[in-house]
């Protein structure tokens, strides 16, 4: 199984990465080898194995609906490269139309 150039481009768009042709060419075989590695799992027979969502043997861990102090505005914005009026300031996103959530 090998990823097509179009598939690599689609993955890049989903991750908002603007890859050059050279980068696509170098990333493609790397992704292929990652997929091949994971594909080894298909060798296992899972016919009678129940699907699982966690490897832990616990469930129902929750907290009370009680407010606790969070971060101050200055703290929240402390690491942002750009800010304005208490907000994070971000540049337009690559492929905004395609990415805007439903």
């Amino acid at each position: 199984m090998s990823l097509t150039v179009a598939e690599v481009r689609k993955l890049a768009l989903l991750a908002r990465l603007d890859l050059s042709d050279d980068e696509v060419a170098s990333v493609r075989p790397q992704l292929d080898s990652i997929l091949a590695f994971v594909k080894q799992l298909t060798e296992l027979d899972t016919t009678d194995v129940e699907p699982m969502t966690t490897a832990l043997d616990v469930d129902n861990r929750w907290r009370e609906d009680q407010q606790l102090p969070g971060l101050m505005n200055e703290e929240a914005l402390a690491n942002s490269p750009s800010q304005n009026e208490g907000c994070f300031l971000v540049p337009p996103v690559l492929g905004v139309v395609a990415s805007k959530k439903s």
Binding site: R61, W62, R63, D65, G70, L71, N73, A76, L77
Partner: peptide, 30 residues
């Protein structure tokens, strides 16, 4: 455990979990 109150000044009801800071872990609200 951040407040859900509507209309607060921007980014004053936030914490590492809802800011998606590395290492922060979610815990369900019962």
């Amino acid at each position: 455990s951040c407040s859900t109150q509507f209309g607060a000044p921007p980014n004053t009801q936030v914490c590492p979990v809802c800011l998606g800071l590395p290492g922060a872990l979610p815990v369900m609200n019962e």
